[in-house]
Design a protein around this nucleic acid. Structure first.
Length: 374
DNA sequence: AACTGTTTATTCCTAT
DNA sequence: ATAGGAATAAACAGTT
């Protein structure tokens, strides 16, 4: 089973439609759908794990796995709280959201988390505070309300690139250079000011403070690996959207099943402008596998403000530059609820009451109307 | 009062 | 078996 069906990202995410909840059908890293049914017995080492393999070119709606999955919809999803939070953040247009939005995101998708809210919400708050990969973004005065926004630390990279959404290979820890020796823990302030201390290596004329690669990480000579869940979620929807709105573009492949060869390699660099006192980082993201469609994430041409001394507590993420010419953002379509709903129904053929599109990264993609190839 | 955020402690679980 | 990541519980402080 080497291929992942594009229908992954096209399934309604809410049960209120009377349609199946895709989030309760858990994709495993090998392209099958897995339902995990865990006894509450403490001494069980026979976690009853049931795997259902769906045929390649089947839409999930017509799959026999569906009714099966619905029966077990309320069992615990195989995602850590950290990955759930990460998905909520990445799924939001601004790439940051409040605590209550994170709660809502999770409950909307997983029936399991509509119960025992006090327990798991306490865990979510603990995860946000405890893990360095999450940073608090203060509210601007224009957006008053309860609580801060939460964003991903720019250096945290793709924490789930190994395709495992339960346990990261290594916990993201910021280097602890500015830590007050009297303090035992790293504060959010420390997280922010350590942004440029996790330097990996530099490239280009300006100093690159970090670099990470999202997407394929094949070593030379290796066979292409299986696409991860997030990749399979993000890529097909953009193709589908393209089909419906740009059918006259011949360079868009028409197949609905993708192997890892079609997964864009997205490279991200932070550039530090040394002449600026306020420390502005330009975050450039581009597809190094740029043939046909040009994938650019929302960070493209954005500049990240970061105040080292923290006193001004400027916005952590702040968009300055407009999108490149000839592009449009799907963000713009889904920001407003009415637009989102029509966008959603166009995409899926179903109505929705949800405000979220459960497609990691996809909603932040730009589409380039011009043929970028030479 | 309810919500948000921090911290400590403990237990559970999994990769090695 | 073990180290360390993740989940859970809980106390407590700050904010709306």
């Amino acid at each position: 089973m080497d291929r992942i069906t594009s229908s992954y990202a096209l399934i309604p995410t809410t049960e209120l439609d009377g349609n199946p909840n895709i989030a309760d059908l858990w994709p495993s890293s090998n392209g099958t759908y897995m339902q995990q049914v865990t006894n509450n017995n403490n001494n069980n080492n026979n976690n009853n794990t049931i795997q259902q393999t769906l045929s390649n070119n089947n839409s999930i709606q017509s799959s026999p796995g569906l009714s099966y999955a619905r029966r077990y919809a309320a069992s615990k999803p195989p995602y850590s709280y950290i990955s759930l939070i990460t998905h909520a953040i990445n799924g939001s247009p601004d790439r940051m959201c409040t605590l209550s939005q994170i709660y809502q995101y999770i409950q909307d998708r997983y029936a399991y988390y509509r119960q025992n809210q006090q327990r798991w919400q306490n865990s979510i708050r603990h995860s946000l505070s405890f893990n360095d990969c999450f940073v608090k973004v203060p509210r601007s005065t224009e957006r008053p309300g309860k609580g801060s926004f939460w964003a991903l630390h720019p250096d945290s990279g793709n924490m789930f690139e190994n395709g495992c959404y339960l346990r990261r290979q290594k916990r993201f820890k910021i280097r602890d250079k500015t830590k007050d020796p009297n303090k035992s823990k790293i504060t959010n302030k420390d997280k922010m000011s350590n942004l440029n201390l996790n330097k990996s290596h530099s490239s280009s004329s300006s100093s690159t403070i970090s670099e990470n690669t999202i997407g394929r990480l094949d070593s030379p000579g290796s066979s292409p690996r299986q696409a991860t869940v997030s990749e399979s979620l993000s890529v097909p929807l953009t193709q589908q959207y393209y089909h419906q709105h740009h059918q006259h573009y011949p360079q868009v492949p028409s197949q609905t099943t993708y192997s890892t060869e079609s997964v864009p390699i997205i490279k991200t660099e932070y550039h530090h402008n040394p002449t600026s006192s306020s420390s502005i980082y330009t975050h450039q993201t581009y597809d190094t596998n740029n043939n046909g469609l040009q994938y650019l994430t929302s960070e493209h041409n954005q500049q990240y403000f970061h105040t080292i001394d923290q006193s001004a507590s400027a916005s952590f993420l702040h968009q300055i530059a407009p999108p490149p010419p000839g592009t449009f953002r799907i963000d713009n379509l889904i920001n407003g609820q009415p637009d989102f709903k029509s966008f959603y129904s166009t995409m899926t053929g179903h109505e929705t009451t949800s405000n979220y599109l459960d497609t990691t990264n996809t909603n932040n993609y730009y589409f380039n109307n011009t043929n970028p190839s030479s």
